[in-house]
Design a protein around this nucleic acid. Sequence first.
DNA 1: ATGAAAGCGCTAACAA
DNA 2: TTGTTAGCGCTTTCAT
Lengths: 339, 339
Amino acid sequence: MKVTIYDVAKKAGVSIATVSKVINNTGNMRDSTRTKVMKVMEELNYYPSVMASALTGKRTQTLGLLVPDISNPFFSEMARTIEDRAHERGLSVIMCSTDEDEDKEKKYLELLRRKQVDGFIIASSFHDKKLLQDLKSTQIPMVMLTQDAGSLGVTSVSVDDFTGGYDATSHLLSLGHQKIVIIAEERLSSKMRIYGFQEAYETHGYEYHSDMVLRTTASIANGKKCLEQMLNRDELPSAIFACNDLIAIGVIQGARENGIRIPEDLSIVGFDNTILATTTVPSLTTVAQPINEMGRKVVDVIVDNINNEEPTTERILFKPTLMVRNTSARNQYVNKKMV
Amino acid sequence: MKVTIYDVAKKAGVSIATVSKVINNTGNMRDSTRTKVMKVMEELNYYPSVMASALTGKRTQTLGLLVPDISNPFFSEMARTIEDRAHERGLSVIMCSTDEDEDKEKKYLELLRRKQVDGFIIASSFHDKKLLQDLKSTQIPMVMLTQDAGSLGVTSVSVDDFTGGYDATSHLLSLGHQKIVIIAEERLSSKMRIYGFQEAYETHGYEYHSDMVLRTTASIANGKKCLEQMLNRDELPSAIFACNDLIAIGVIQGARENGIRIPEDLSIVGFDNTILATTTVPSLTTVAQPINEMGRKVVDVIVDNINNEEPTTERILFKPTLMVRNTSARNQYVNKKMV
DNA sequence: ATGAAAGCGCTAACAA
DNA sequence: TTGTTAGCGCTTTCAT
């Protein structure tokens, strides 16, 4: 059977209170006692039960991480740094991929609450804002990741999506592209990128039309689909700004299959700078999010929230960096004109 | 404060025992009672504590997943299917990336035991076999994933690595390559792939030398390093079989940077068939592991183990599939001879 | 059909 | 310095 604190106490000839003290390294006692107890714990291969200790009001030492899809490299890279930092801070993490599905959001949130996680890191956008509101009212620490909390009044760690969108678009615009399509997701972060897109258009003195925006969800297949859709409608622009690398890769693949040369016929800029951006050919021009710093920061913030009474409501914005690689080039049409 | 079973009982005007029964859907009681209690639970927003219930001998309903690195697409794709299936079966999963580091292996194993996970899925290879032996002796259900349990006598879910190695090598050999280098990891699965490699050599009537084997750990950077190392020593073969896609991609990148054409000058075969295999150019010839089926199966096996007294010890082997794409081609040298 | 009470493994006063 | 004891929120016999 499982070794309990009683077994240790008995074998060490002390009370369970004493054992508890050595486990938690609290209280005073003779050195010899501490040593003896530790020795017995060792011998018995004793592991204190986190369950039991959590039940007495201590923490469960686990974090809930909600992401849209852990198999999306952006989130798996993020998860990795979160996991590492969490472990450094003494916490484990339970992962949940919501697919941004309303039922799963609810289900996983409830599940994690039942498991009494010490805090939530929410990188998945919620359809039902009320769920988040409810969660907030429970006082369980929570931090939004990759999406500004905005109205919710909750701490968030994200990249400056507006600027990212602006930079990507400016890059394309200054390359002579005038007809650019932005492929966005249905999330707040995409919305901000669209605003950045719009702002860049206006700054450069061009006119922005809302029909430059295409919506989809993050996957290679969907990126390809968008490209084909444009092709069928004979509306292919000279450049595409995809709101994440997965979609961008899909566009690249679709282009290749249809004999469209990149970047000669079509320029593409992605977002995230995942591993995929460097392994594709041509390598992908994309907006980098500082994944490691963000992952580390989000854990530090949630740990602070767990340890302090007062929840913070700061909105932490990281700086995006445009990584110019090989899928973006000067608009041929403009070139010809100039020649 | 947190809503407990007592709050529900009080408000519903029943005892906690009754509430417990409706939670677990056990025992008999008047329909009206059950309904009333459920209504109160709803109103109070009551979530039974998994902690407390686990303490009374029930399960924690969580699985521990040990992988080398969750940001490796192979493992993140695997984690995704595991997570999904686990949730379907009512379990959550705590992820731990060990980096195949001896200290982390030990630390995470202990951590997960303290958290009383119901079972372990171990996809990370352990340096210290004794840890695994100890774990096994605790009777906590465990399943090895992507590595045959072999001597341990524990259930395992893996791909037939020997055949995978054999197929990849045969493919290359029959393409006229005689000098092939295999880049392997320090894991059991790699070892089996090497044996498959060796077997293919022998079957095809060629001579196998142990200096055809290079060792490294899974990363793009390491793959590139291996390529450069061969280059420096002027020992570049006409084909390389990398034991996973990450390494293969690194080799491709290294080759490109050094002006080596793929597949004209160098053929490459990877292993795993991750998302990377399709996004690189040329697309990667690789040995596919049925990730989804494996992930699903491993959860089903562990759940069975949790529910039954008797631990199983079956070794489940999935069939690998060679995906011939564009990084492997006929050896030029042989071609010329034939012409 | 319902409830009282013991106990799961641990923590934290409070006593001794 | 060490031990006693009352919970923590729940399950589960065993009474009623």
